[in-house]
Design a protein around this nucleic acid. Structure first.
Lengths: 209, 209
DNA sequence: TAATTAACGTACCAGATAGTTAGTTACGTT
DNA sequence: AACGTAACTAACTATCTGGTACGTTAATTA
C-alpha cells in the first residue's frame, strides 16, 4: 500500500495509523490484531508505527485514548437544562442509546479492554479516572427531579448511569451471542424503537415510583 | 507437569484439558491463549490436546459448549411456580444476578465470543439455537402476573430477559473499565445488596406501572 | 497369553510475528 | 545553497506458536 513520493506530514501519518489501528484492534482484539496487517492497510510502512508509537501496546493505548476522547466530545454537547426532569432523563438515556449504536467499534474496544482487566487504561494517565461529563448532567437532573417532587430521593447518579450503560452496551456488545441463541437481532429496526422506549420507561418508572 | 506412570483414563484426561483450557481462554481470550501454556498447566502433554480436540479452535468450541452446559443445568432447577408473580420475578432476577457473579469465567467467555461475532457458537450444532430454560419460566411468570392484573400487558419475555441479562452481565463484564474511570468497584460488598435490590425494583416498577 | 488398539510421550518443524538495523529523502532554517 | 533534522523506507531477524512425525506403553480382547 505504501506510496513513494508522498509529502511528509507527521500529523497525518500519526492520524492514519491510529485510524487503521482502531479498526484492526476493534475487529480482532489486542492479541488477535497484527501489526503487519495494520501496516498493510496504511499508506505508510510498519516502521512508522514503531517510529511514532514505540510498540504494539503503546499503539493500542493511544487508540483507546483517541476513542474515549471522541465520546467525551459528544457528551460535552449535552444540554437538557431547559427540559423538565423526566424529559431530560429520557433524552439523556436516548442519547446514550443512539451514541452506542452508532459507535460499535468503541464498544468493542471497551469489551476488549475489560478482557484485559483495564490494565492499559490503568497505565494511561490520560484515561485513568477520566470523569464522564454526562455524569454531572445526570446528577443535576436527579436533583431537579427530586426538588420538584417527581423523582424518588436517595438515588445515586452513578447507579442510574450504570443501568443506562448496561442496557445500551449490552445491546451492542452481546448482540452476536444473543442472536445465535435467541434468534433475535437486537439491532434490527423492528426492535430499535421498542428498546429505546423500554429503556426510558425502565428508568423513569423506577425514578418516579 | 506431565507425570509418567499414571493410569490411563480418556474421560479424565479430556475433562482436565477442558478445565485448564477454560481458565486459559477466559483469562487471555482466544488469540491470547497459548496451547503450550494450557499444556504446561495440565498433568498430560500438548499432544493430548491435538489427540482429543484436533486443533486450538475445536478445543475452544468445546470449552464454550461445556460452559453453556453448566449454566443450563443451574437454570433447570429454577422453581418459582409457588410464588406470586412479583416475588417470582424478583427471585428470577436475583438468581441471574447471583449466578453471573459466581461465574465470571463464563461471562468472560461470552464477551470473548462476542468479539469473535459468535462465529464459534454458530459453528457448534450443540450451542446454536440452544434455548434458555429460564426464558420459559419468565414467560410463565409474566402470564400469571398479567392474568392477576398486577403486571402490564404486551410485555415480551425476551425483552425482560434482555434487561436482566444486561444489568447482570454489565456488572461483571465491564467492572474493570468502570472501576478505572469511575473509581467504583461494582463487585464490592458495599454495593452488592443495593444493586441486587435495584435490579428487582427496576424490573418490577416497570412491570407493575 | 498373544494380538490389537486406545492412550500417551518426546522431539521437532515451518510459518508467523513483533520488533530492529541501517540507511535514504524531504524540508525548514540560516 | 548547504546543512541538520524529522520523516520515511526496505530488508532483516530472533523468537514464538500451532501443529506434527514417530515411537512407546497400558489395557482390552480373542
Amino acid at each position: 500500500m505504501a506510496q513513494p513520493d508522498r509529502t511528509r506530514d507527521a500529523e497525518r501519518t500519526r492520524a492514519e495509523i491510529i485510524q487503521v489501528a482502531t479498526r484492526e484492534f476493534a475487529d480482532k482484539g489486542y492479541a488477535g490484531a497484527r501489526v503487519d496487517e495494520i501496516a498493510a492497510k496504511m499508506s505508510t510502512t510498519k516502521r512508522m508505527i514503531y517510529y511514532y508509537f514505540g510498540n504494539k501496546e503503546q499503539l493500542y493505548v493511544e487508540v483507546l485514548e483517541h476513542a474515549y476522547a471522541g465520546i467525551r466530545a459528544i457528551e460535552q454537547e449535552l444540554d437538557v437544562e431547559h427540559l423538565d426532569p423526566a424529559d431530560a432523563m429520557r433524552q439523556l438515556a436516548e442519547l446514550t442509546f443512539d451514541h452506542h449504536e452508532s459507535h460499535p467499534d468503541f464498544i468493542r474496544l471497551v469489551s476488549i479492554e475489560n478482557i484485559h482487566r483495564a490494565e492499559h487504561i490503568g497505565r494511561s494517565t490520560v484515561l485513568s479516572g477520566l470523569a464522564n461529563p454526562a455524569l454531572d448532567v445526570l446528577a443535576r437532573i436527579l436533583d431537579r427531579g427530586r426538588e420538584a417532587g417527581v423523582f424518588r430521593s436517595g438515588v445515586d447518579p452513578l447507579d442510574i448511569h450504570m443501568v443506562i450503560s448496561a442496557f445500551c452496551v449490552f445491546r451492542i456488545a452481546n448482540r452476536h451471542t444473543f442472536k445465535a441463541i435467541f434468534k433475535r437481532d437486537m439491532l434490527s429496526p423492528d426492535h430499535r424503537e421498542d428498546h429505546r422506549r423500554l429503556l426510558g420507561d425502565l428508568v423513569l418508572d423506577y425514578l418516579t415510583r
